[in-house]
Simulated assay, not measured.
Amino acid sequence: MKSHSPDPATPAAGAGRARNRRGEGVLLRDEIVAAAERLLEREGTEEALTLRSVAREAGISAPSIYTHFADRDAILDAVLDIAFERLLRLVTQSTEGVSDPVERLLAGCHAYVRFGMQDPARYRVLFGRQRAGRPGAGSPVDMSDLPEVWRRRLDAFMVLVSGVRACVEAGRSASTDPFADASTLWTSLHGAVTMRQFVPGFPLPPLERTVDDLVHRIALIQS
């Protein structure tokens, strides 16, 4: 009986994922990031992300990750970029077509807290990680001093600054420093999200009412 040699185009059993063809490197990189996002969403913590777990989720060998990412933190940075882009898109989409500046500011703030409540794992990665090189308490920082990557990631915050400034220009806010008041508002919104995530069952007021109160008080909204 004539024997048949294996088809060279068919990977042997147990050989793992086939090598990407020329031009498919970007696709593999996207697969790695998507695998990390799925793990983060499923496990709810960034500790679940290891090179081995991401490789297993993506169906590739762990060493092949190094072609695209230097280490686990590089994968997390890619996940961060996507999450910040998603946050910016949600905030900007929520304000489209809203002509009243106060209502526009409220819409953006509500979108922010919805993101935090509906996507808690990604939210914790965005704002819960301890990062090296941050300024000490009380040290003023100019946005231009931040690395370019962080200026881009904070575009959603700049939408908040613009929202407070628009209220001032329309005579609807008594703020004399929209940047500082937007910073305080962001901090307070973050606290509202974090309290509900980490202190479940505490008798806090409804989140929508909390957001409305924070915006009116901190942005010094005038009726």
Results as ranks from 00 to 15, higher is better:
M1H: 06
K2T: 12
S3M: 14
S3F: 14
S3T: 15
H4A: 12
H4K: 10
P6A: 10
P11G: 13
R19T: 14
R22E: 01
E24R: 15
V26P: 03
V33E: 02
A36S: 05
L49T: 01
A58D: 00
G59P: 02
I60Y: 05
T67K: 01
R72C: 06
D73C: 01
D77W: 05
F84D: 14
E85C: 04
R86F: 00
R86H: 12
R86N: 13
R89D: 06
V91T: 11
V91M: 14
T92W: 02
T92M: 08
E96N: 02
V102Y: 03
L105E: 00
H110C: 04
G116H: 08
D119Y: 03
A121P: 09
R122S: 00
V125C: 09
L126R: 15
L126E: 12
G128F: 04
R129Q: 13
R131P: 02
R131M: 12
A132Q: 06
G136L: 05
A137G: 01
G138P: 01
G138T: 01
P140R: 00
V141A: 03
M143N: 11
L146I: 04
L146C: 08
P147M: 05
P147W: 11
V149R: 15
R151Q: 15
R153S: 12
L154P: 12
D155E: 14
F157G: 05
M158P: 08
M158S: 10
L160T: 04
R172D: 14
S173T: 07
F179M: 08
D181K: 08
D181G: 12
T184R: 08
T184S: 10
T187L: 13
S188Q: 13
H190S: 06
P206W: 04
E208I: 09
R209S: 11
V215F: 02
H216R: 15
H216A: 12
S223Y: 08
